[in-house]
Amino acid sequence: MERISLGHGEGGELTHQLIHDVFIRSFDHGEQARLDAAIISSSSEQIAVSTDSYVVDPIFFPGGDIGKLAITGTVNDLAVTGAVPKVITAAFMIEEGFPIRDLKHIVKSMAQEAEKAEVKIIAGDTKVVERGSVDGIFITTTGIGAIEQSYLNPESMKKGDAVIINGTIGDHGIAILSARKQLGLMTNVTSDCASLNQLIQNILRRTKGIRAMRDLTRGGLATGLVELCEDFNSTMEIEEAALPIRDEVKGACEILGFDPVYLANEGKTVIIVDANEADLVLDILHKDEYGADACLIGHVTAVTEQTGKLKLKTPVNTTRRLSRLSGMVLPRIC
């Protein structure tokens, strides 16, 4: 099997070959590759820029791989700000000995996802590091999007606004865990990894009263909403019983002792919208492949001077205060 060697990163002939064989072919940026930088033009006054690094174990998982993730993640980051993602750059950090076949596979799925999301991958960089310096492959992508019209209006967020999610939570988290074969979890859950930019643009164009959106990734629904609450001084209450969660995900959480509101997602966004427009938003979502399981999960209950809080109404009618994912595994119960 062909593998990446340190020579692939030295900037010489091997590097040239690798770029040519693997990247240019897939990304189809023959023109830009000859220049030191990619040059793009934009008609919009405002542009959005986002960058993110992707490390995932395992690299290939049900529903996607690190390459697809590197596109969807950055595309979604741009999309929820109301931007139309246009171009993406990608930097690869590859461990010596990484199979070239896997690299090709990853690059191919990046290209596929970019095509589907209608973004161009316009520039890239590759470094090869010694064995053990990285775990297989790390990818950093930077995306640029055009803000053609500003639809989002977080300052107008008010009591009663609806909190909507485009589908089930925790799929990515559980898919990754079950893909780590050693867990022996028997689930068929696939990652929800998807680019939501077209869906989001569709909603933004066809509705009024969208206050804010946030894509949910690491830290899950709870962390995403807590950030929204804090950023816009609003308190939200979500209903545990209303949260869309697959039975397999529930079952896995039951065994592992995880809370689904903290599980990672890669194709989910929350949408805060004027209550009067909630049905319309849901309608649009339900017709889209990435919004079939969309539902209303709660409301904004107050907009205040101080930092907002996220509350979760439980089925037994108590209210949990949710914080960001703590990253600590510690029992609280005595």
């Binding site: 865990l177 780590r180 050693q182 867990l183 022996g184 979890l185 028997m186 065994i255 592992l256 002792g257 995880f258 595994v329 510690l330 029992p331 005595c334």
Partner: peptide, 24 residues
């Protein structure tokens, strides 16, 4: 049995398995 199988992997791979030495 089914859960024990998973739990044994959780323990080996240190997934959500804090260490404790308590009387309770």
């Amino acid at each position: 049995r089914k859960e024990i199988n998973v739990i044994s992997q959780m323990v080996v791979n240190d997934i959500n398995s804090p260490l404790a030495g308590t009387c309770g």
